[in-house]
Amino acid sequence: MKRFYFLLVLLASLNSINSQEIDSDLIIIKQRMDSIKSYEAQIKLDVDISFINMPSKYGKVKYRQGESTKVTSQDFIMLPKRGLDLTLNELFQHPFITVDRGEDTHKGVNCKVINLIPTSSKSDFSIATIFMDTKAKRIVKSEISTKMEGVFTTSLDYNNIVDVLPTAIEVEFAVNSIKIPLRFLGKETEVDRKAIKEEGSKSGKIFLTLSEVQIAR
């Protein structure tokens, strides 16, 4: 009889592992984001990387449900590979499980923290940590460890408690210094390989400011 109970408990626990659910708050946030059919906004981009000097760039960001976010500009612009996925479509592209990591604060906001662990090898990230403002039903911070492109930490600021889209996005990432300055691209052409090797990768930031946001639901 004892063996039977043990077997029953074991099967029950195995079943719960296999059917591990996605965090309910994340689903609520995702559903809220899915209510956006499309949006358009003016975007300002500022780069903060020690070896790059670039003036503020301006463009337009467009999103339509089922399509990826598009940014257009008359200038040359550099967009972070992560951080513009405001509707979480990229994260939800392949199956994953979530693990509750408790609570933490971000910029004074009490957040629920979860880990997203992909269950498909097709996923381009290995793990993601999401800080959710469950009261406002939105994400305020994410740390996504990609398989190929390093770690991207995104911080999102909103104008008020009801806004669904952020007005300021800060994306932090690791970036390697320039290794091959070209002879004719400047007067300082010496390559200090030792210094570059010692420097390794640096963290860079890009600041995206959204304005004139127009959402269609």
């Binding site: 500009s73 040359f76 550099m78 972070p80 190929m148 390093g150 091959i180 300055p181």
Partner: peptide, 17 residues
Amino acid sequence: DLLLDNLKDSFEFRGNL
């Protein structure tokens, strides 16, 4: 391409240099 090679991991580029 060679000049911006190190930035390709983190950035996507729009526009013509």
